[in-house]
Design a protein around this nucleic acid. Structure first.
Lengths: 154, 154
DNA sequence: CATAATTAAATGACATGTCATTCATCTAAT
DNA sequence: ATTAGATGAATGACATGTCATTTAATTATG
């Protein structure tokens, strides 16, 4: 392997390691409000964009690429999400938060803020900016960043 | 949320998105040689460091933080790994590759090279270097990078 | 020496991601 | 209008990650 390829390997591993660590932190935090990271993302998106179909939801989720049928099913079972049939085109479903889901969305907002507040002091601000710029630069034209663009985060 | 916190959020999502996309690519490639990304990492590590215990293996894996009992069990079942009891301390197991596992390790090396060869041209070299530097800079003193250090990748 | 504390590994439980397949509905082509 | 193709969603299958608990072996303590 040449130099660039070795760098690419390290990038891959660092991204994997960072994702895992972030996921564990988030798992711990979301557990405190009785949900999971993936469920948290779904509720957050629905809070911002409801009503929407499963396909639209999937296109905004970063945590999952396919259509999040199961993820949504558990949220319906737990009473956070209301799933209706779309009258105009019955292939689609219409998803929106229940009152309970709206409540949970507020808790999620507070947990997320706490998380970022806790994380930021652990990183040098300049280095974080450099990482931000580098990540955006490399991935902004990649399909993996599509959902982020749609959500206007980049 | 303040500016830094928003940046942190985007960093988290970009890392998640990149990890997922990388995983899908690797899934596709490793499938062509009949294994999975996680199995590939275990065989690769054993090829370099065998014999070793489950605990040691776990400390070198980036894909999993706990002890990879199940992961190794499936590899034992498929005949890639030999699991013996450590005579001196019978709490430990001693893991090493079977001849079949050694063969697979060669295939993995070739697949990995192909992957990085294919990936590198899709990224601007300068941007990749910037991302590499930023990632190493931010994570080199974090626990998530421990395994990478032990493997002398950073 | 006997027992308590520690440690490595295995296992049960749960939620996920991914892919392939199936089912129902809608659209397009003839 | 009928049928073939396309599309959204649900589901089966498989392999993972994580945590909590259990089991077996070793070490430390009194």
């Amino acid at each position: 392997m040449n130099f660039d390829q070795k760098k690419m390997e390290v990038i891959r591993f660092l991204i994997l390691a960072a994702q895992r660590e972030g996921e564990r932190i988030l798992q711990d935090l979301t557990k405190s409000i009785g949900i999971t990271p993936a469920q948290s993302e779904v509720i957050h998106i629905l809070d911002l964009y409801e009503p929407m179909s499963l396909k639209e939801l999937g296109s905004l989720l970063i945590c999952e690429s396919g259509s999040p049928s199961r993820l949504v099913s558990t949220l319906v079972q737990r009473g956070f999400v209301i799933r209706k049939e779309n009258r105009e085109d019955r292939r689609y479903v219409s998803l929106q938060l229940s009152p309970l889901g709206k409540e949970k969305a507020k808790e999620i907002k507070s947990v997320d803020e706490k998380m970022y507040e806790a994380m930021v002091p652990n990183f040098d601000s300049r280095k974080m900016s450099a990482l931000y710029d580098a990540l955006v630069d490399v991935f902004k034209d990649h399909p993996s960043a599509e959902a982020l663009k749609k959500r206007k985060l980049i």
